[in-house]
Design a protein around this nucleic acid. Structure first.
Length: 563
RNA sequence: UGGGGAGUCGUCCAACGGCAGGACGGCAGACUCUGGAUCUGCUUAUAGGGGUUCGAAUCCUCUCUCCCCAGCCA
């Protein structure tokens, strides 16, 4: 991957690989893999793994495979395969012609299993799931051997063959590795290698009714693909001895090294696929691609760019300690990117009517606005202006609080790219006392936004012409959870009790007419309000905009403190 | 209390026996036709105790805290 991202700092994994390259450990070869299970959508935590695995491969002139870890037909679906491919590509990485499935290797895995049985290193066990659990012991007590542990190789071979042939019902037998029931590492207490599952597999159909377990399938898959560095998350750390045991016993040529790093935790959101699914199925969000979801598809719909996500992954680093990255960093990354590339446009989210009393009734004019002050190459556009305009409700205070220097009675402000404007009166709702209309005068000499006499104004407001503005729907998003750690709950509660009831606010807003041409996926900065991205829900004349992120809002802080 | 890991600014990541540094956040200021952007400055950090050493975040040792593991899930 090439790009303008900040230079990649090193980390302990890159240090290991660098050393392996220098010592020629794998003949100077680096080959990684990204191995998602197709049982859910990818999220920002997967992006960290994708950037690590593909990134490392690129940096060391190696390769990275995409491999679907599809060893559990009960939970996996093709729908997920397609979304995962789309998301990896979108993030900016390409597996070339190396897209594999663990299920591609089922024949080889079976052959290896037979080999282990022959060597007396695996046996068919007739214990039920519950009995296996009882025999496994506990964290502090050793397990007991299965009564079937010492079957002859011949008997095991025959039984395993019959398991494969479908002679036994689900759960009636397993193939187990014969290791050590007294090991302090529970993974080594004769782990199950194969279970019987009469289930249709999304790729192999009904060819198999026995399926390999992760620990057995993963190391064998890595070995078959010639992986050199098998990078995974911390919870697999105590599976490493088992990973190595299988490959050592099988005496395979390629024995990759497993390296574990800490998974990503992001404040104010959750990363567990199971919990994310709960949000979707419980109707708390509209789907995996709901812009509030940390799923890649959600971030994409929200308006995040692939560049910003890659940059974020670079900045968070890679280490072994559990951590919680501040959401503010992700927001910084998207602002930084969008600031450089987004065209600016004016939209009024919460309109307040302004009548410019000294502006001619039937007149309108075209004013020139800069598309992006950060990039003059993006040119200019014209914006229509007329007697009645809308400004942001928050930009007017009848009785200005301390440090408020926007519009209020008697005060002059600038309308961006238009004129200086002075408030001369207000119209209130008789019942509520709420200001429903503001009356102002403009100074014709300030056309374009500069005053010939050099007088200064403290605020510049965005606006739209009432007669020309188009109606848009603005969807404002806030964090899905109220606590930085959504799992921090009272006894008996779960993460859902920390959900933010105001994570979505839908507004009928007004925008300058050029936005009527906006296409889903187009991104804009609504001046002073934030970055917005056109949602696929947009129909005909009414675009829907998702707020990707607000602009940094110094005033909001000042106001909060002043209260 | 078995096994495996991890402890450095508020947060994340560096420093690999030799000046504890960067980024984000926060605070203050400059500038500004976005209270945006940009720029400048500031920011109570090596879990604790012993030891080795001229010198320790780094090595040794004891202690403490946190995370993971008892799926026929991955």
């Amino acid at each position: 991957m090439t790009g303008p991202e900040t230079p990649r700092p090193s980390d302990f994994i890159r240090d290991i690989i660098k050393e392996d390259m220098e010592t020629g450990k794998y003949g100077g070869r680096v080959h990684t893999r990204f191995p998602p299970e197709p049982n859910g959508y990818l999220h920002i935590g997967h992006a960290k793994s994708i950037c690590l695995n593909f990134g490392v491969a690129d940096e060391f002139r190696g390769l990275c495979n995409l491999r679907f870890d599809d060893t559990n037909p009960a939970k996996e679906e093709v729908e997920y395969v397609e979304s995962i491919k789309e998301d990896v590509l979108w993030i900016g990485y390409d597996w070339g012609d190396r897209m594999y499935y663990a299920s591609d290797y089922f024949d080889q895995m079976y052959a290896y299993a037979v080999e282990l049985i022959r060597m007396g290193k695996a046996y068919v066990c007739d214990l039920s799931a519950e009995e296996i659990r009882e025999h496994r012991g506990t964290l502090t007590q050793p397990g007991r051997n299965s009564p079937y542990r010492d079957r002859s190789a011949a008997e095991n071979l025959e039984l395993f063959e019959r398991m494969k042939a479908g002679e036994f019902p689900d759960g009636s037998r397993t193939l187990r590795a014969k290791i050590d029931m007294t090991s302090g590492n529970i993974n080594m207490r004769d782990p199950v290698m194969y279970r019987i599952l009469h289930a249709e597999h999304h790729r192999t159909g009904d060819k198999w009714c026995i399926y390999p377990m992760y620990d057995y399938a993963h190391c064998v898959s890595d070995s078959i693909e010639g992986i050199t560095h098998s990078i995974c998350t911390l919870e697999f750390e105590d599976h490493r001895p088992l990973y190595d045991w299988f490959l050592d016993e099988l005496k395979v040529e390629c024995h990759p090294q497993q390296i574990e790093f800490a998974r990503l935790n992001l404040s104010y959101t959750i990363m567990s696929k199971r919990k994310l699914l709960q949000l979707v199925e419980g109707g708390h969000v509209k789907g995996w691609d709901d812009p509030r979801m940390p799923a890649i598809s959600g971030l994409r719909r929200r308006g995040y760019t692939p560049e910003s996500i890659r940059n974020f992954c670079d900045r968070i680093g890679v280490a072994k300690r559990d951590s919680m990255v501040d959401m503010a960093l992700l927001e910084f990354c998207i602002r930084e990117d969008l600031n450089k590339r987004s065209p600016r446009v004016m939209a009024v989210l919460r309109p307040l009517k302004v009548v410019i009393v000294n502006y001619p009734e039937n007149k309108s004019e075209e004013l020139t606005a800069v598309n992006n002050p950060e990039d003059p190459g993006m040119g200019t556009r014209t914006v229509p202006f007329s007697r009645i305009i809308y400004i942001e409700r928050d930009d007017f205070q009848e009785v200005p609080q301390k440090q408020f220097f926007r519009l209020s009675p008697g005060r002059e402000v600038r309308l961006r790219y238009a004129y200086y404007l002075t408030c001369v009166g207000v119209v209130k709702d008789e019942k509520t006392g709420e200001v429903v209309e503001v009356h102002c005068t403009y100074d014709p000499a300030t056309r374009g936004g500069d005053s010939p006499d050099g007088r200064k104004v403290k605020a510049t407001l965005h606006w739209v012409s009432a007669a020309h503005a188009i109606e848009i729907e603005a969807r404002l998003y806030n964090t899905l959870f109220l606590k930085a750690d959504p799992d921090d709950v009272e006894e008996g509660q779960d993460f859902r009790s920390n959900m933010n009831p105001d994570s979505l606010e839908t507004l009928a807003a007004r925008a300058e007419p050029c936005l009527s041409d906006a296409k889903p996926g187009d991104r804009f900065q609504f001046e002073r309000m934030g970055y917005f991205c056109v949602d696929p829900d947009s129909s005909g004349g009414k675009p829907v905009f998702n707020r990707t992120v607000t602009l940094k809002d110094t005033w909001a802080k000042v106001r909060k403190k002043g209260k």
